[in-house]
Write a protein that binds this DNA or RNA. Structure first.
Lengths: 133, 133
DNA sequence: TCGAACCGCGGGTATATACCCGCTCTATGC
DNA sequence: GCATAGAGCGGGTATATACCCGCGGTTCGA
């Protein structure tokens, strides 16, 4: 099996490449796809603790904590405390809600573009394969 | 389109997950899949400059430079100079060759495991889809 | 009620990744 | 031969990501 069919390396390449598509589209808003997606998840689950959010997005808790802190510095997310004093509860700030609204069509654009390029059937295949890995 | 069908986020998740499979398999050698793959590419192209290697592996030159420096610290790669005094020429050190030899069956194992799980047809589909992105 | 187990986080450390800037070396035109 | 343009790198900065450790808050059993 030749080196350039390594599933992992191909996946990583594709991941970097596709991420850059979304990053470019979202660049006018000053956020990247990782930040935008995290913001969406915070919005969906708010108020949510770091631990719960990390589980939901399938990332390490410390990673989510650091990424959330960047969003907080940007003024997109508020980090407060829950009843349990240990918990850092995340909510979307007004500025973050604005980004979500402005970003939605930009995100849709890239999404549609990719689906148009692949076609409906292959798009479905891709979703299925990625879930199966 | 629901949030959890974002092509980008799914790709990133799959990429992290699959990377961890390879990382686990290679852990006994003290290298991760990124390092192992880079080492393979250096071996394939040696002697090779940073710029050329970066083009081949589709990564930023500075990224390749930093990753190569880690491999050098590990004693797996030698970084010398070409005729052009500006060029950093990379070659695989003996210790790196040993890692390549020991790692090959470990890498094959994960590769086979994934293919067995997906089946031949879906494996082919995956390769095709990732290339089309 | 009080100590022990347990849970949630922050921060340290390390790699991965990209963009940009500045330095140095090379090549080219005059 | 020399000045200038261009190429190759290193390093700064910033985010992304994971693992581990220690601190502090909670809870529960004795």
């Amino acid at each position: 099996m030749p080196n350039d069919t390594c599933h992992c390396i191909l996946l990583r390449k594709a991941s970097r490449k596709v991420s850059s598509y979304y990053d470019e589209a979202l660049a006018p808003l000053g956020v990247n796809i990782g930040q935008f997606s995290l913001l969406r998840n915070i919005n969906r689950l708010a108020p949510v603790s770091l631990t719960e959010l990390a589980i939901q997005v399938d990332l390490d808790r410390s990673t989510v904590g650091r990424n959330a802190k960047v969003l907080e510095r940007m003024g997109l997310v508020a980090i407060g405390h829950g009843e349990d004093q240990r918990e850092a509860m995340l909510t979307v700030a007004p500025k973050g809600a604005a980004i979500l609204k402005q970003g939605a069509p930009l995100w849709d654009g890239v999404q549609d573009e990719i689906q148009a390029r692949l076609g409906a059937e292959k798009t479905r295949q891709l979703q299925e394969l990625l879930a199966a890995l």
